[in-house]
Structure formats: C-alpha cells, structure tokens
C-alpha cells in the first residue's frame, strides 16, 4: 500500500460522491450516460467476486488470511459496489424522467464483445474468477466511452460533471504511478494486463484532461468541448 494507491482510491471514491451529490442537488441526471454507469456496475461486479470468499471467511471467524489490507480492500469494494448500483438505481427510478437516454447512443456491444473475447484470450489464468477479473479490467478501460460520446455531443459539461470526469480519469492515472512505484520498490511483477488497460483508460481521458485544465486556467464555469 502506498500514497499513490491510497490517493487513487480516495479520488475514485470522491468521483462517486461528486456524481451522487450532483444528481441529488440538481435532481437530474441530464448529461450523464446511463450506459457508462451501467458498465461500471458490471466492472465492479465481475472484479469483486472475491468478496464472497472474504466475507465467507469473516462470518466463519476464519481470520487467518484477513490482513489490514484485506479489510481496507473489502470495505472499499463494498462502498464501490453500493455507490455504483445506487447511481444506476437513481437513474432508473427517481431521476428517470430526466435521463438523457435519447443522446446516450453508444452501442454497448462495441465494448462488451471485444472485452469478453480479449479476456478469454489474454488472461493470467484460465479460471472463471480470473477471466471475469480480466474482463472487468478491459471493460473499465473503455467503460467511459458512452459518457465521452455524450459529452462531445453535448459540447460542454457543467463544472460538477467535469470534476466527476477528472476524478474518474485521474484515479487510474494514479494507479499507473502506483504500479511504477511498486515495481521499483517491491518484489512485485507488474500485472501487464492491468498496466496496458490502465494506460489505455487514462489515455482515453487525455483530451478531456486537456480541456479540463484549459477550463481551470481560464476560470470558465462550464467546460467547453469542440463540437
């Protein structure tokens, strides 16, 4: 565990709270891609299946393998799952009338199918858990595509949406730093699957980061994108 990893997780956690706050404060989910949020619930569901294993150990008081890191991870995994499902729930119940589905036109198969095929080919072990974990790593890298398409179509984002995108994009960039740090300081062979996917994920936010920093520098309220 290092400062890069902790700040990455906290930035990721912050992204959930920014989004939930924005949706609750504006009582609207305009400009938010339901498809991207749905993909995130799928990402965390496929990635955190080991939760059942850990929780199983806990309720049977088998604390032999439970370390501080396990507790931290378990706590955060439950938080991430709860937050991402809550967001999808909000978008399909209370805020359904304000949904932007008409403009959320990204075809999900364009990311689901390639990620599934890639996970079957390139994985560390050919087991269900490992393939689902790998699928979640690939999917998370491209899950932001529907949101990016919606953002480009809208042509601009209000400040909370841009802070949300900055947090979601920034957390994986910090994970890249975390992997470099671990590679340099621990007998830790970097998981090249997570590294490449993380790099692609961060790169996808590249142009967004550029416009985000331009907005911050120019003190604009809304983020302007070239339409």
């Amino acid at each position: 565990m290092n400062i890069f990893r902790i700040s990455a997780d906290l930035l990721h956690l912050a992204s959930f709270f920014i989004l939930i706050f924005k949706m609750k404060a504006t009582k609207s989910c305009k400009g938010i891609s339901f498809k991207t949020q749905l993909m995130y619930t799928l990402v965390f569901t496929c990635r955190y299946l080991d939760l059942f294993h850990v929780l199983g150990m806990m309720i049977t008081f088998n604390f032999a393998h439970i370390t501080g890191l396990t507790l931290y991870n378990t706590f955060m995994k439950i938080l991430f799952l709860a937050a991402s499902y809550y967001i999808v729930y909000l978008m399909r119940t209370e805020l359904k009338s304000t949904s932007d589905d008409a403009r959320d036109t990204f075809v999900l198969w364009h990311i689901l199918a390639p990620c599934a095929v890639l996970a079957l080919i390139f994985n560390a072990q050919f087991t269900i858990l490992e393939i689902l974990w790998t699928f979640s790593i690939y999917l998370e890298a491209v899950a932001v595509m529907p949101q990016l398409m919606l953002l480009i179509e809208t042509g601009e984002a209000d400040s909370l949406s841009s802070h949300y995108m900055f947090a979601v994009g920034g957390y994986r960039a910090l994970y890249l730093v975390n992997w470099v740090y671990r590679y340099a300081t621990e007998p830790y062979y970097s998981n090249w699957i997570a590294w490449i996917a993380g790099f692609v994920q961060t790169a996808l936010f590249g142009d967004f980061f550029y416009y985000y920093f331009v907005k911050i520098m120019s003190g604009d309220a809304a983020l302007k994108l070239p339409t």
């Binding site: 990893r5 997780d9 990721h12 080991d50 294993h53 890191l69 991870n73 955060m76 995994k77 991430f80 560390a124 072990q125 974990w133 790593i137 994970y175 975390n178 830790y188 062979y189 970097s190 998981n191 699957i193 997570a194």
Partner: peptide, 10 residues
C-alpha cells in the same frame, strides 16, 4: 493467488 499482482488492489 488473491495477492497475485493486481489482485490486492481495487
């Protein structure tokens, strides 16, 4: 295996 690279992270 859980602590295998990347699996001890979120």
């Amino acid at each position: 295996a859980c602590l295998e690279a990347g699996h001890d992270e979120l």
